[in-house]
């Protein structure tokens, strides 16, 4: 065995390397610190504070969490609301992603190249109006005496009146309408990145159009689909507006009438002066988001290994 003197040898630096290169990380680092790390750390930290005489006092106490988890599935029903929110978020993300993928596919493959930008712009047009405005218009469409039911009545189908407003389905509709434009852009870009030659090659090797889709386009869209779905889950989990305006704050569900978890955090914030408790509630949501994402990625990775 020969030992090499490593202490004396410096790592080789290519002439193209510059010690200043590290500074190009600065914009990313600043962005992450100011808009992500600091607020997050602050939130996590406050979750351990306690309240004394209606004043938040810095501390390291697990009291808030103990309080929350003590009644997690009983009185406060935070647990049930969280499960329901997860369920709504996952199903919303599922439908929103599939819907957006179909729109993105048709823009990328059915629209002539020079009209694609315009088609994309039109497809994401809903994004130009405000979210709250969109939710209110859905209210007028879905409500008991709203557009849909009026039309049904006109045709003498009053018996078939639908009761969508203030249900989880309405919550999902609002969320999907909100999410779709963003997902369409994400998915369109990821489809655009697929080399068309590969589709030709697949067809040339004997693929039907459908096989070219399942064997080449779909696997190569996987990353885009994962990104879109994760984005949709996170946004849906954190959203309280659609649940409040369309879900009626307590959308009917299999579990009963329950507000979404995000909406519970909101009301907790406005009805009590217990900011540390609210922070603890929010922290729980963040942990669930991270876990949901991790589970999603593991599942997608397993699926890929199995198919290839």
């Amino acid at each position: 065995m020969t030992t090499v003197e490593t202490s004396a040898t410096k790592p080789m630096r290519t002439p193209n390397d510059s010690p200043l290169k590290i500074w190009f990380l600065a914009p990313l680092a600043i962005w992450l610190t100011v808009f992500f790390l600091l607020p997050l750390i602050f939130l996590l930290w406050i979750g351990f504070w306690r309240v004394e005489n209606f004043q938040s006092v810095p501390d390291f106490s697990l009291g808030n969490y103990a309080d929350i988890f003590a009644s997690f599935f009983s009185k406060s029903r935070y647990g049930l609301a969280l499960i329901q929110s997860l369920w709504v978020a996952i199903t919303t993300a599922f439908f929103a992603t599939i819907l957006s993928y179909m729109v993105a596919l048709s823009i990328a493959f059915a629209v002539p190249a020079r009209w694609q930008r315009l088609a994309l712009l039109i497809a994401i047009a809903p994004f130009w109006s405000s979210y709250v405005l969109r939710l209110y218009s859905w209210q007028t469409i879905l409500s008991r005496n709203g557009v849909i039911n009026s039309v049904l009545k006109q045709f003498g189908l009053a018996d078939y009146r639908i009761d969508l407003i203030y249900t989880q389905i309405a919550t999902r509709i609002g969320l999907i309408h909100y999410l779709a434009p963003i997902l369409i852009v994400i998915l369109y870009v990821s489809i655009l990145a697929i080399d068309r030659v590969l589709i030709e090659a697949a067809r040339e090797l004997g693929c039907t159009r459908w096989q070219a889709f399942t064997r080449v386009i779909l696997p190569l869209s996987r990353f885009g689909l994962m990104t879109a779905a994760s984005f949709a889950i996170i946004v849906s989990l954190g959203d309280a507006l659609s649940g409040n305006l369309l879900g009626g704050g307590a959308g009917t569900s299999i579990i009963g009438k329950l507000p979404t978890y995000a909406s519970m955090i909101m009301s907790d914030y406005s009805s009590s002066t217990n900011l540390p408790r609210t922070s603890a509630l929010a922290t729980i949501l963040i942990v669930v988001m991270v876990l949901a994402l991790a589970a999603g990625f593991v599942a997608a990775d397993r699926a890929r290994r199995r198919t290839s």
Partner: peptide, 19 residues
């Protein structure tokens, strides 16, 4: 194209990156 009894070896390979 998918029913032709010809097969092309592509000038720039056109291999599937996901496989």
């Amino acid at each position: 194209v998918n029913l032709r009894s010809t097969r092309l070896v592509w000038q720039n390979y056109a291999l599937f990156p996901h496989l």
